[in-house]
Write a protein that binds this DNA or RNA. Structure first.
Lengths: 232, 232
DNA sequence: CTCGCCATAGAACGAACGTGCTATGGACGA
DNA sequence: TCGTCCATAGCACGTTCGTTCTATGGCGAG
């Protein structure tokens, strides 16, 4: 997605006196990229570099003691097979320690799984490395003022993940009130026995209702019924 | 929004000759806003208005017969109490008929529920009406090329909805790769037999792994394991 | 009033599930 | 090399689940 507002396009015609800039730390294993990112950020008048880290471990150890406003995080910190921490792990650890810290993820990956993992871990923005320098700087500013900058392709994936083709809803509508009630309890994971007890019924009755539920939902097992109930 | 006079003057020719522009329809109950949006879009060189609709009903009836590339949809089409269709209903109906059509939602609301309802219904972008004219035009173009333009505040809400404080993840991390793999299949709802077949294992092995899964997740039944796996 | 639907409940039975054992072989670290 | 963990697999046993019957009573539509 694209920034819709540019809140701080201030250009105070000179150098900032070191203090009040947007403080940024960078976690990136590739030295070249790490230094060029640092130079990019350091070259602005409104941002400054706090620290840079070459791996997740050092970032997790130090960032809580030297918290910046925004962390720019490479997702691909360690090869998949290695025992080392990934960028996703690093995001999760940092957000656990500093929930208010904003994390902007920067990656070559645009595969959906990694996007969602990172967002679940607490990233607030997600840019592909192919983004231009200006986009990266603008994204850092945007994430700092409460936005969620994402590459266009990423944003679309995120939005589409909300898409719910709920034809199961049509099937769920076929259920009677009692059946839905029992199905809801089934989705809590308890035994038929427990469901019966909590509704003051016999297990026979529970079985009858659930049999009807299974028929109407066209499923054969308890798990399948629960999955349909939850919208898979 | 502010219909500020765009520098682009209208085309000298009265009618468009089957141009290859981006075709846009507008659904908006407020006449003033509807017309100013139409003028805004019509004033560009790369877009043209197909139709405008004052309510959901007419849009649902006609859009499938005169499909544009992008629909700009007001979410607040009818007062809450009235029996009339809302913008969310309209999005759902239109996407059901034309799944490939892109819908850009435009609304004064920035409350979270409505955002998610609209996205679930199939909207691809979500702008607040307070957006500037240029932002609206840019969003229409972006939604057409596969993006998901959102106001900054909306994007942040969407991203935050992914945030999962996964304490279950702690337990899921205890699982071996094979165990996770089998658990994932368990969550598809098939029998042990099916899981075994799809992995080329015996059902005994599947049982062994799942027993280990149950122990590590502290659950006793299949359904409970699936619920934990799904983060419920 | 009868018919159909819903909710209730019991019995019986086979299939699926969960647990308890034993056992083999590969990988990896101490 | 030894110990540990993991993946594989079989067997036995009891529990839970899903199906198929039958049966009673309430309630609304025709």
């Amino acid at each position: 997605m694209t920034p819709r507002t540019s809140p701080g396009d201030r250009r105070p015609s000179g150098r900032e006196p070191s203090s009040q800039g947007l403080r940024v730390s960078i976690v990136e294993d590739d030295r070249i990229l790490r230094e060029s990112l640092a130079a990019l950020v350091g070259g602005t008048t409104d941002m400054e570099i706090v620290d840079t880290y070459p791996d997740a471990e050092s970032a997790i150890a130090t960032i809580p003691r030297r918290p910046p406003d925004v962390v720019v995080m490479d997702l691909n910190l360690a090869p998949p097979g290695s025992g080392r921490k990934s960028g996703v792990d690093c995001v999760a650890a940092i957000k656990a320690a500093l929930p208010g810290l904003q994390v902007l993820v920067l990656t070559v990956y645009d595969d959906a799984d990694r996007v969602f993992e990172a967002l679940r871990a607490g990233a607030s923005g997600y840019l592909l490395k192919r983004a231009h320098s200006e986009e990266i700087l603008e994204a850092i500013r945007e994430v700092h003022v409460g936005g969620a900058p994402m590459s266009m392709q990423i944003a679309r994936r995120v939005v589409e993940s909300f898409r719910t083709d709920r034809r199961p809803a049509g099937e769920l509508d076929m259920l009677t009130t009692r059946e839905r009630e029992i199905l809801a309890l089934l989705a809590e994971g308890g035994l038929y026995k427990d469901i019966a007890k909590s509704l003051g019924l016999s297990t026979s009755t529970v079985r009858v209702h659930l049999h009807s539920v299974y028929t109407k939902l066209h499923v054969q097992t308890r798990t399948q019924a629960v999955l349909k109930y939850l919208g898979r």
